[in-house]
Design a binder for these strands. Structure first.
Lengths: 339, 339
DNA sequence: TCGGTGGATGTAACCGGTTACATACCCTAC
DNA sequence: GTAGGGTATGTAACCGGTTACATCCACCGA
């Protein structure tokens, strides 16, 4: 492990009989090198297995060539998909991605500050870290907030409120459900809060109120399972459950039938995200599709652009969503659809 | 964003009327500074909001103060838990963690090589990257392989083969199941392959053979759901399904009941990992507990130790597992247990 | 009085790259 | 023959830290 000292520019320069400047020009594809010289230098580079030190390079260029991503946790298909979008853009910019799972860290603020010191730009999921910390960090690196609110300079998001209002309206208007409850509302997370607002708006527009406070304070499958058991224990299962995301809905789907409740007959369920499992679980999940990978890609693109000094004006990017009606709401399968 | 130039050691030195050496001594807690001087320097540091550049520091110390982690993907509670273990150790060593989702990257080999250049040590999940690449990278950074095989220098793992053999034995010996199938066997991943071997060993020891080839080639919930639908389509549902991990089992649990199959009455299911959902889904999941966070923590500890030059001898660390019998295998709930 | 000792601080080299500017050379045009 | 211009390459400073070694000073004992 790291037994031999890695070769440096000076080693290559000496071996190839040129100056360090020429070596540097070769490694950074500067055209001002005679073809013959370039070949000789390249040969030395290959012979020694030389690769420029990222530290030296970063110091000289005053650039880390790295993008930081702050997410609440690292579990769940939603974040995996988001990261896929981020990675694809980062790879195209030859930039490393450093992810920070905020919930895994005892001292989030400190961790974010340290992260800012070793990256050029940050993509931060709203609600993972104090706005004060974000502001403090914003004059060191470019910051893009995912699902941010108007007070953040640059944000990328979807309109969760309208989307959740629409899917809730479907449950009431098409299926006639009157007793609905929301599942998944962690304190401090703006995105579930938005969806919950949309849920309540749909109800109040129809003269209804939610038939109980939101269930569960987490966003993972395990929280859906816990909610299902709480519901069963209370003996009061509503007509329909509107979930803050698909993960929670799966937790319900993996628990309610075993507890004796048929979905959607005894209780209808809708999710949010439209991840891969939504189209395969049984019943297939009615949900709101959002372009998750694009959210990540857009955020990464904006962050990297800002880091290269392209002073993008303060912007709020809203990507489109689409309600996907399947069977967990009570609809029959579309003719020809795979059950 | 990055509008003002950050202060450097020389700025602080000038302002405090001392030399750079003294400033450096203060920031690195060197005791050879008079208390009074230290206070003066600290005041300047605070006044300017100075924090040492990680690049300059890294260059001088020849240390990145970063740990790389290579995992297949970033989804799923298993990896989240693993990372929690890694992060806790890294935080204690004041070290940043950079995760690489191998499946998110088109060019894994290149990505790993670049990662190696900006970290001091690598924790790599076996099967995510070619052993040749690993070997090439191993003389630049310390490498610890998770779930690795004997050919890797340092590995941390559990004995998945014995564990899976035991839980399969339970299905046959206690519940009398004869027709069993395995679910989840991605090509190239050694861990599921080990578990599959244990499964087959249990069967052959009892004069049985698996009643069909392994179902599904993925390890996520969606693969379990797909397997459930394939099984339904084939019309041939076995007595029991042994899953490579809990995630797959949940995919089954969120799909089979909706397809008309009761678990465990029509088909028994067992998982592997014992993640949080296992104890809450219905029926609760019979599975193999493994100390996931500890696996990550141990790997991180070994990697960091090796990076600091502590030439740990080649080692193979095997952490213990434990079969957890609940109800998805067909057992009745233990008296007093929460259903 | 003076050499010796130890503690606090400063000087300058070094880590491994990039790059502004200088230089050397060749070719062309007057 | 030489001024002028373009091209290929080299020199040395710089990026922002750390640290070996030198220096300075106060205090000690002989």
């Amino acid at each position: 492990m790291a037994a031999v000292r890695r070769p440096t520019v000076r080693d290559i320069a000496r071996h190839a009989g040129v100056s360090v400047a020429t070596v540097s020009r070769v490694t950074s594809d500067d055209p001002r090198v005679r073809a013959e010289t370039r070949a000789r230098v390249q040969a030395s580079i290959d012979a020694h297995g030389y690769t420029p030190s990222s530290l030296g390079l970063g110091l000289a260029r005053r650039r880390h060539q790295a993008l930081g991503v702050v997410l609440p946790g690292l579990g769940g298909p939603y974040f995996a998909e988001l990261l896929r979008g981020v990675e694809s853009v980062a790879a195209a910019h030859d930039t490393a991605v450093t992810v920070l799972g905020a919930h895994l860290r005892p001292d989030v603020a400190g961790a974010v500050e340290r992260l800012a010191r070793r990256t050029d730009a940050l993509v931060v999921q709203a609600g993972t870290v104090d706005d004060a910390v974000l502001a403090a960090v914003a004059d060191e690196v470019a910051v893009v907030v995912l699902a941010g609110s108007p007070q953040h300079p640059t944000t990328v998001r979807t309109d969760g409120e309208s989307a959740c209002r629409d899917v809730t309206a479907h449950l009431v208007d098409v299926h006639g459900h009157r007793r609905l409850r929301f599942v998944g509302l962690p304190p401090g997370a703006p995105e579930p809060a938005q969806r919950h607002r949309g849920f309540r708006r749909a109800l109040s527009e129809r003269g209804l109120v939610e038939s109980g406070p939101p269930l569960s304070v987490g966003l993972e499958a395990v929280d859906g399972a816990a909610a299902a058991r709480d519901l069963r224990a209370s003996g009061d299962v509503p007509d329909a459950l509107v979930c803050a995301n698909d993960e929670i809905a799966f937790g319900l789907l993996a628990t309610l039938p075993g507890l004796g409740y048929d979905v959607p007959h005894d209780v209808a369920i809708v999710g949010f995200d439209d991840n891969a499992l939504a189209a395969l679980a049984a019943p297939r999940l009615t949900t709101v599709h959002q372009p998750t990978a694009e959210l990540g890609a857009t955020a990464a693109r904006l962050a990297l652009a800002a880091a290269s000094g392209e002073e993008e004006p303060t912007t709020d990017h809203v990507l489109p969503t689409r309600t996907v009606v399947r069977e967990s709401c009570g609809c029959s399968p579309a003719p020809g659809a795979r059950r």
